[in-house]
């Protein structure tokens, strides 16, 4: 079991979360060239090592979070709220 420190709820089992996917993908603007959309939708860096990914605390607070995780050791390096305003608000309150 991977233990994920949810920024809202504290550390929980990963089975409470659903895995989103590669968190480094930035979707292009709607009028961007087809190749940009192709790359964003279909191409992945598939890092062996530390990567940024999205998870949702589906059986908890239901918030989306960014997790920096090692894909070989499953060690978690950092966690933050996916919504930028939410992440800033959390830092202020802490």
């Amino acid at each position: 079991m991977i233990r994920i420190p949810c920024p809202f709820c504290g550390t929980r089992d990963h089975s409470e979360f659903t895995y989103g996917g590669d968190g480094s993908i930035i979707y292009p603007s709607l009028d961007a060239p087809m190749q940009d959309w192709h790359d964003a939708v279909f191409q992945r860096e598939n890092i062996c090592g530390v990567q940024v990914e999205t998870w949702q605390h589906a059986n908890g607070c239901r918030m989306w979070i960014y997790v920096e995780r090692d894909t070989m050791t499953h060690e978690i390096h950092s966690v933050r709220a996916a919504h930028p305003d939410m992440a800033v608000a959390l830092e202020v309150t802490i």
């Binding site: 079991m1 991977i2 990963h14 089975s15 659903t18 895995y19 996917g21 590669d22 598939n46 062996c48 990567q51 990914e53 894909t71 070989m72 050791t73 499953h74």
Partner: peptide, 13 residues
């Protein structure tokens, strides 16, 4: 196992 991984070991869920 639902999340990306290069480790050749599975998880209990």
């Amino acid at each position: 196992d639902w999340y990306k991984s290069y480790a050749q070991k599975g998880n209990l869920p």
